[in-house]
């Protein structure tokens, strides 16, 4: 049962076939991008992704503002720490962080605590328990953490005066380690 197909039907049929094939290729490309997004690791170098974070009342760390923007802190060494009140290992490193903040504050180092997916009352209780005084705020809408591709808490990043990430640490930080990194960053 053969039909004589006119040139036009042959072309339009070809067009449909190409479109079908392109749709399939398109799907694969989308999956490839999805894979890249899923497996993106935390940045260990390069420009630190900018963000704006609202600050908890009473926890502006002397900045005198209600929110802080990373880009505004260019020229200073910034230590960014992702934490949460429900995170047990975070409690281990918290005294170290507060202590070093008080030591290095005068040298122009800024500590920023980003509260990941937390409830305000519990967070404020946590900060009060540890006597934290550096700027802290919630990652509202969970917009900041995806930029840093964090997998959990605690995770910390050290940003130098030019706004580049120079150090990244998963898991609680020991005092000696952070001291060394801060000193190295200040010398640059």
């Amino acid at each position: 049962m053969t039909e004589i197909t006119s040139p036009q039907t042959k072309t339009s049929s070809m067009v449909w076939r190409v479109i079908a094939l392109l749709v399939v290729v398109g799907l694969v490309i989308v999956l490839a991008f999805g894979l890249r997004a899923r497996y993106a690791a935390q940045p260990r170098s390069g420009a630190a992704p900018d963000f704006t974070m609202p600050l908890y009342a009473g926890y502006d760390g002397g900045l005198g503002k209600q929110q802080v923007r990373l880009a505004d802190l260019r020229g200073q060494v910034v230590f960014v720490n992702f934490w949460a009140s429900w995170c047990v290992p975070c409690r281990e490193e918290q005294p170290v962080l507060e202590k070093l903040w008080r030591q290095y504050r005068a040298k122009g180092v800024v500590f920023l605590g980003i509260d990941y997916v937390d409830t305000e009352p519990a967070a404020l209780q946590y900060l009060k328990d540890f006597g934290v005084t550096y700027p802290n705020g919630p990652d509202l809408g969970t917009k900041i953490s995806p930029k840093y591709h964090i997998q959990g808490v605690p995770e910390s990043f050290l940003v130098d005066q030019q706004g580049n990430i120079v150090w990244f640490k998963i898991a609680p930080i020991a005092e000696a380690e952070l001291t060394a990194q801060l000193n190295a960053a200040l010398v640059r």
Binding site: V24, V25, L31
Partner: peptide, 27 residues
């Protein structure tokens, strides 16, 4: 997390494009 993502995607692509292409060619 594992490293099978990229090779798996490659195989998926080959299978999809290959089979659909073959079907379209033999329509």
């Amino acid at each position: 997390r594992s490293s099978i993502g990229v090779p798996f995607l490659a195989f998926t692509a080959i299978m999809l494009v290959g089979s659909v292409g073959l079907l379209l060619a033999r329509l």
